[in-house]
Design a protein around this nucleic acid. Structure first.
Lengths: 249, 249
DNA sequence: GCTTGACCCTGACGCGACGTCAGGCCGCAC
DNA sequence: GTGCGGCCTGACGTCGCGTCAGGGTCAAGC
């Protein structure tokens, strides 16, 4: 196969293949009399590995080092698999973070700067690999512990969302069964709401909660959020929250 | 906040912030008398969005365009969420591709070049399919080259294959002696199969195993591998594996 | 046999997104 | 007042290619 075909197959440009040849990362195993590059199946194998490592963020020099370590193909597949799964987890964490922000935004809550930036931590795969390898070796225990702590974080988040949804459900049910918004029962739900915010997001005093209550009917985004659950719920929640604020004061 | 603090918080270098200032992507809203950059919370918001878009692969110029479009924050969050989910899908596809290749490798099956590269970029398979098939598909050279590159870690490799063959032998025997594919006994062999993969290749969850099971009857090369051992074995293994996946869940 | 157009070659320069000094000013502590 | 860490502005370097420029190659069609 000559460059053009390989390029089309692998979804890269001819220039890229020239570049890889020049820097010695992937030199075709043959040339025609006219000097045309000829790629063998083994070259394609190598290209495949190169592209995967590149996609994972490794600088080409390190890719070359990895591939010349004399590791067998299965070893590379295992490593690529591990790195891809790390990336999957990381992306999931970012999705969760964005969802959290949407939720917070919908609730009118502002996250702390640390919280917002925490997903942008160490993530350079090359650096990560070298560093952890040095520090912990390649122990499964370490990988396992990382996996589990991330799981916990995710589970926590799911619990938070479930709890929030539960409070909203209780509000909606109270509204549906005709319980007055300023009754004891509705105020108890409002208090649960305040506790929920305090426990998971920030110290929410009764006055702050009162402010939130007002915002729930003034801010159209929040109103929309609650109206979507049940018509009239925004006003209902607002009233209950403010009544509860008075009771707590 | 001054540059150093912001840099530490966001996990970028000071130089990066200088760069963003220079190109007008993120200019701090203030300066001290001495010329020190002063970042406001709003600047942090913007930086957060910048870093997310950057992470998603947007060139900085486009990030600037996106952010100056005057879209509200929620719009950006929605877009980022969408892009992240796309990325999640793509990564999952790549994980699946690597798993398929490991499986193929373990069985001594070679995938076609198009198949191996298909996760990279979207090219029209029909265009090159016939051609490459003809050229590489079944040639001895291709098989030979693959066989040779596979020889590296010979001893380990032989052990792994022996173990795999043993599992296949147990499957074949169960089939021959009329043990139902969804019986306890067959499922136990399936579980041994899953453990084998986990031990030697990658952490194979029940769902992943379920996916493999389906592949054994959908992909003719895998089917052929099993049918060569005993007619009906592909379907048998597939059923047992899927039954076991249900049991493990 | 000759032209034509697609494909290939090797420089060589350009670019995006920073890294990395160099040389010098600020600010707070001791 | 003298360190010492942090900040400033150039300015050049690097990585992974993109993009011409100038020229040879190959299969097809006339």
């Amino acid at each position: 196969m000559n460059v053009g075909e390989v390029a089309a197959l692998a979804g890269v440009t001819v220039r890229t293949l020239h570049h890889y040849d020049r820097i010695g990362l992937l030199s075709p195993s043959g040339r025609t009399a006219a000097g045309y590059r000829q790629y063998s199946p083994a070259d394609l194998d190598r290209l495949h590995a190169v592209l995967l490592y590149r996609e994972l963020g490794f600088p080409l020099e390190e890719v070359a080092a990895l591939l010349s370590e004399g590791a067998d193909p299965a070893e590379h597949l295992r490593r690529q698999h591990r790195l891809l799964r790390d990336r999957l987890e990381r992306t999931q964490a970012m999705v969760a973070a964005v969802e959290k922000e949407m939720e917070a935004h919908a609730m009118g809550i502002s996250l702390t700067p640390e919280e917002r930036f925490e997903v942008f931590g160490e993530h350079d795969p090359a650096q990560y690999e070298a560093e952890t390898q040095e520090r912990w070796g390649e122990t499964d225990a370490y990988a396992e512990s990382r996996r589990r702590t991330r799981m916990y974080a995710k589970e926590d988040w799911l619990r938070i969302r479930d709890e929030g949804a539960e409070v909203e459900r209780r509000f909606a049910e109270a509204l549906r069964s005709g319980v007055p918004a300023d009754s004891e029962q509705a105020m108890d739900v409002a208090e649960a709401h305040r506790q929920h915010i305090t426990r998971w997001f920030y110290e929410c005093s009764p006055e702050m909660h009162d402010g939130l209550g007002r915002m729930y009917v003034e801010d159209e985004r929040f109103t929309a959020h609650y109206e979507e659950i049940t018509p009239g719920l925004a006003q209902y929640v607002s009233t209950a929250v403010q009544a509860n604020a008075v009771r707590q004061a």
